[in-house]
Nucleic acid binder design. Sequence first.
DNA 1: GCCACCGGTGGC
DNA 2: GCCACCGGTGGC
Length: 335
Amino acid sequence: MERDHLDLATLGKTDHNDIHGSSVASHRDNMKYEPKDLRNSADPAFNQNPIDVTSSPEREDHSTDDEDNQGEDAQKQLVLYDPAAVGAGEIELVPDPLDSQPRRNSFPNYTSRILPAVGAFTVQCANCFKWRLIPSKEKYEKIREHILEQPFYCETAREWRAGVSCDDPPDLTQDGSRLWAIDKPNIAQPPPGWERLLRIRGEGGTRFADVYYVAPSGKRLRSMIEIQKYLQEHPEYVAEGVSMSRFSFQIPRPLQENYVRKRPYRPALAHDEDDPVKRISWIGSDGGTDLRLGMPGLSAPIYRAPLFEPVSQSLKKKRTPSKRMSNTDAACKSS
DNA sequence: GCCACCGGTGGC
DNA sequence: GCCACCGGTGGC
């Protein structure tokens, strides 16, 4: 099955997580961006609060994981999806060209591959769990920013779709025809003039996606450290009120299992990476089995996602220039 | 030479 | 297992 568009979702819960949301936000308001490992504290506000990320109840249900979904009544989900793959329905979508155009992968061994791109945006009603299309990326980002404190309901969609309610059929279902991924809730909207880009990587890679921020100058920034440097070099943005708290490089999670290649077991002894045999041995065990695509109800396992990670997590000072892996690894990768 | 995309690494 | 950062590199 060839799919070149991706569905994304942001999940949220109303209850206790709110506290952490605001708490983290206040920390993130600080312009000073301190790597976590340089921070002195074990601040409880930085403790992650795991949240249940579940599949939509809308799916055709032959699955066996329903018991895991219980107690998720308050959940809300945002999803991105490709209207073209399904037949768009009444909603006129204005997909962002940057995000909706499938891209060619220029990486070696993948030269003619089409990369998935975000097609459109959808949110799950906190009441009926039906998916509602969101007509623009901007609106989606606005909803996502406060999804925990302000749950999304079908009625919310009346802003752009008159009279819609929970009685109406869902705008889409997880039918396996597209990639779906769960987005993170409460990500700040990018500052005015800035854009937050989500780039989906090819299947079988080491990670699912990358986030870039595009500054008004067109400069692409790909980490909080780069943001900080950029703001230091361009104090005019800071004067406008742009602060580190407006940025998040959190990426969604694919609902498709095995979309991302699992990282191999890393032995405690660093010497093993010098041993070509050991390096190769884990590669073949990666599986690559069981894509389960197109099987409704099966492509949406339960995920537990840390939702309130401090933005400043895990920064390193300087990485020691290490020996890069040889071609042997790349050759094994497509097994 | 630039840059989009990917892999590797280290931390948690 | 997940996340964040960033170096490498093929294609343009």
